[in-house]
Design a protein around this nucleic acid. Structure first.
Length: 508
RNA sequence: GGUCCGUUCAUCUAAGGGUUAGGAUUCAAGAUUUUCAUUCUUGCCAUAGGGGUUCGAAUCCCCUACGGACUGCCA
């Protein structure tokens, strides 16, 4: 058996921003392609004109680029199997649908959406569920129930119609899913899906199968929500006579909400305080903003690493993977079958890990723009030195400010609890003495400051904690931060003294 | 309702008939830090329930329960 080239596709619909479940699907496709030296394509499934959202496709593309999942082929990425937008392939789908009608695998349906809505409503009122299937098609308005003459007449008179798949009766369709193993459906339970809509566009089912065939896709790796339509797709390949070359299927488990029931949805981010989208998304309709991992300060490598481990593992204790390591280790066999609850805490932990791996200089480059946005001028050397001191208390670049703002500006407020606990009657006098001492120090460097400080303290016989804690309060505004003398050194002699005197004055 | 898929610590997961059921996150405690955080150490915590098969079951089979997806001229 000759080995077909591995070709996989990520086929989102541009109906809104890509959410993290979609990114994970793209990631697994990408890893599978890279692992096997194959191609990763992006195909835009925009066959539903009513749901088209401007900007969604650009969002998808930008998200994939941010994540490092750059397609080998796709709109704007080149490739010889294009076009890669289904709307641009529109002209070819009808003949495929027509081919199925001619071969008896499909039929014309004249029932209007309104007719069907009514039937569904009636069935529901009767406590039943309406399905357009082998039981009901004989009594509905279609080319199976009508005479050939009537059908012909309706078509030539320009009556709109859809083309439906004629689901075979009582046939077992079994497929070896690459993740789930053998899955069997009986066609008796399946309905006659629309393949071609009355608006001249194919449905997902038709377009998907036709395009996967034409684009020579070898493996369809998609979300579990598609599992129920797998038998239809398999039958379509059979109906077209493409069974020999048809792709293999792998259905990925879903990503579930951190708490509560159901799969992760767009709104969960706002409700539970974490992004569900890779990038910030401004909804063009409502103007509403949805937060993104990028804007929330996550590194793409952390985001990808987290996503990769949501439903997959290498079979070892390794949890930190570069993209190269993911490619090397990836296999569909090691994808878990059950849905995974998303864990925002673990995601934060991954980000922390990647941040800690970066040098102070790298972080400084990322942090400088934040300082500039606050109109704070700081020497790059100082920023690097500050980050060196506080990096290990940060999970995000923005935490550098949270954890170290006092290196760049005098505290505006003093933590009340700390004041209550550390500020004693003798404190003002002691601090004033300290300010005076600091004025005499010639070499303003942590070691020297500490030496002078200690000598002075010993001479006075003061309690170290009794002075150091209030001193820290003056400089940082609270009971936190790295080594006190490093803080003194970094903020400078003049500023240190000025902050002491200011605090003494304000706190009293 | 129907069809299909699933079920190991709170969470992500390992263990593919024989392990004290392992790792990570979270949480808790101790050590370090004359502060806070970090770091380190330790700890807590799981095979949904019931039947089989077997010398032996988290692992294989059946039933139940629970969870999920789908059930559109959406994808």
């Amino acid at each position: 058996m000759d080995q077909k080239k591995i070709r996989v596709r990520f086929a989102p619909s541009p109906t809104g921003p890509l959410h993290m479940g979609g990114v994970r699907t793209a990631l697994f496709n990408y890893l599978f392609a890279r692992k096997h030296g194959g191609d990763f394509l992006l195909r835009i499934e925009d066959t539903d004109q009513t749901r088209y959202v401007p900007g969604a496709e650009a969002y998808i593309t930008e998200s994939l680029k941010w994540c490092g999942l750059v397609p080998d082929e796709g709109p704007g990425f080149g490739g010889s199997f294009g076009p890669y937008r289904q709307s641009e392939r529109k002209a070819m789908y009808f003949s495929f649908a027509r081919q199925l009608v001619d071969s008896g695998w499909a039929y014309y349906s004249f029932d209007t959406p309104g007719d069907l809505d009514r039937l569904r409503a009636e069935a529901e009122a009767a406590g039943e569920v309406f399905a357009y299937n082998q039981q009901t098609r004989g009594s509905l308005c279609n080319s199976l129930a009508l005479t050939p003459g009537e059908t012909e007449q309706r078509i030539s008179s320009g009556e709109p119609y859809a083309i439906r798949f004629k689901m075979p009766e009582n046939m077992d369709v079994t497929e070896e899913d690459l993740i789930r193993g053998s899955v069997t459906f009986n066609t008796r339970e399946l309905d006659d899906k629309v393949l071609f809509k009355s608006d001249g566009m194919p449905t997902y089912h038709l377009a998907n199968v036709v395009d996967d065939h034409l684009m020579e896709i070898s493996h369809v790796i998609r979300g579990e929500e598609w599992l129920p339509s797998m038998p239809l797709h398999i039958l379509l390949y059979r109906a077209f006579g493409w069974e020999e070359s048809r792709p293999r299927f792998a259905h990925l488990p879903l990503i579930l909400k951190p708490q509560g029931k159901g799969k992760l949805s767009k709104r969960d981010g706002d409700k539970m305080g974490f992004p569900v989208f890779p990038l910030l998304w401004k909804d063009p309709e409502s103007g509403e903003n949805f937060r993104g991992y990028r804007e929330d300060g996550y590194f793409p490598e952390a985001f990808i690493n987290m996503l990769a481990l949501l439903g997959w593992n290498a079979g070892t204790d390794q949890e930190i993977f570069t993209m190269e390591e993911l490619i090397e280790n990836f296999s569909l066999e090691r994808v878990v079958k059950s849905g995974s609850r998303f864990d925002p805490e673990k995601t934060r932990w991954f980000n922390r890990y990647y941040l800690q791996q970066k040098s102070a200089a790298e972080l400084a480059a990322l942090f400088m723009p934040l300082l500039e946005a606050k109109n704070i001028q700081a020497a790059p050397d100082k920023v690097v030195a500050v980050i060196e001191e506080i990096k290990d208390r940060c999970d995000f670049v923005a935490d550098i400010w949270e954890q170290g703002h006092y290196f760049f500006e005098a505290p505006a407020v003093y933590d009340e609890k700390t004041v209550a606990k550390r500020w004693k009657a003798e404190t003002p006098a002691q601090l004033e003495a300290m300010a005076a001492l600091f004025e005499t120090i010639g070499s303003w460097e942590a070691g020297a400051i500490k030496e002078q400080f200690s000598a002075f303290m010993n001479e006075k016989g003061w309690n170290f904690g009794g002075v150091m804690n209030p001193l820290r309060l003056c400089l940082v505004g609270g009971n936190l931060g790295p080594d006190l003398f490093r803080i003194c050194e970094l903020i400078g002699q003049e500023e240190t003294i000025s902050r002491i005197r200011k605090a003494v004055q304000l706190i009293g």
